[in-house]
Nucleic acid binder design. Structure first.
Lengths: 238, 238
DNA sequence: AATCATTTTCTTGTATACAATTCTGCCAAG
DNA sequence: CTTGGCAGAATTGTATACAAGAAAATGATT
């Protein structure tokens, strides 16, 4: 059992991050320090520190003397994020194929089986969770601490989008079948196959998701008449 | 001419970053808020905000209630950082080979020529600067804003190590000859060649540098007798 | 009526004051 | 000599107060 590590700024960061991920704070929304501080029952000092952290993570944009706004993510940018993610995961896979121990394999297989169960049960929420374990097992298998950190951070940043993705028709079964190929390559120690299959696994998610967002955006644009100055449509899961 | 954008926390971050890069603040050193605030002539508030930013960048480690220390980078970790950097640059190269416009090519060639001049003049400082322009031209050529951001951030983080690297014998000439191959692949639009050559270009730097550090570390270990608890040798350019 | 200048208000940036926790040094007991 | 606990000091975390810049509102001028 882990004791929570205090420092309100830390908890605030998580709370605000959550609010953004769930759409309570919509993209483009202006985050006023005084108002947020009141809402969370703290002073402005820890709140500012939380905002600075979120800014470093790219989740909010902090312009000097002009306050903080929730970062807006265009479909184009989201695609670029998934492309980078695909490259990082591919790298994890390449190293993991060469470096995973028997114990690592066991952890991977356990996560893989759990994915299979969730897939059979048609349970997207369970699959979402087990899928995270599965991918993290691969990151860990790379045995490169720095790579693990970078990839985990990126994974976290894309989390809300991934989650939405799993709800589209047949995605669970397709995803699991892709996992099968990835596991085979990793167990066989085939670095190039593991790398390439992971890259595709992620790229496909990104492309599908970007398509989804683009169609949503065009739908919205049609209903919005001519809303004057929104240079790039703001997109985020509900 | 650009006006500097106020906010002391921002300037503080740069100042501290510089002090760490130049070794004034050595790895493992405890950064005391009150003392630093006095030294820079500001209060603790903007100083803390600067430390939080540096923590997000991985340059300092911030443990709750226990203060900030300059991050220690082991040779192992440094190698891992260069490996990730190599992958990012390779990705930039792959995209750039397909996407660079004539204008992009012109910018690249200008930087390449400047590198050649610095190389001929045996001027490491000039080469260091032109080399940055050269690599940034490739990042920009990828036309992926997110990738450009990530790669630039990583480049910045490795900057002090790169700089030291350029002083080893013949490295300038070797580096420039590698640049030649990269430019050829980019102009020819050969994505795989550009990607692979960039990956090697960076990996070689990382490996050489890690070797250098490891030998320095073992030298130090020998002279240090048995210094009790330094689990990983702290490494940073002077 | 529209536009520009000015003043007012509001928000952010910084400093200081206070609270809470951790580290240090000392003393005592084993 | 070591170990354990207990003040005291020192340092970090948070709140509040103040300063400075930006947005908003007001009024004067064309």
């Amino acid at each position: 059992m882990k004791i929570k590590s205090g420092t309100r700024a830390e908890k605030l960061r998580e709370a605000i991050e959550e609010s953004i991920a769930t759409g309570t704070f919509a993209p483009g929304m202006h985050l006023e320090e005084t108002e947020l501080a009141q809402r969370f029952g703290v002073s402005r000092t820890p709140l500012r520190e939380a905002l600075i952290q979120l800014s470093s993570m790219g989740i909010v944009v902090l312009r000097p003397r002009r306050g903080a706004v929730v970062a807006e993510v265009t479909p184009q940018r989201l695609l670029e994020m998934f492309e980078v993610m695909a490259e990082l995961e591919a790298m994890c896979g390449r190293l993991a194929a060469r470096r995973m121990s028997d114990a690592d394999h066991a952890v991977l297989m356990r996560a893989h089986m759990a994915c299979e169960a969730a897939c059979s049960a048609q349970d997207p929420d369970a699959y979402y969770h087990e899928n995270e374990q599965f991918h993290h097992a691969i990151y860990a298998g790379s045995h490169s601490d720095f790579l693990i950190e970078q990839t985990t951070a990126m994974h976290r940043r894309l989390r809300p989008y991934r989650r939405l993705q799993l709800r589209v028709r047949n995605r669970l079964a397709t995803s699991f079948s892709e996992h099968n190929g990835i596991v085979d390559a990793l167990i066989a120690g085939d670095a190039e196959a593991a790398s390439e299959r992971l890259r595709l696994h992620i790229l496909i998610q990104g492309e599908r998701f970007t398509d989804l967002l683009a169609s949503l955006a065009s739908l919205r644009a049609r209903s919005d008449a001519q809303s004057s100055e929104t240079p790039a449509p703001l997109i985020f899961p509900s």
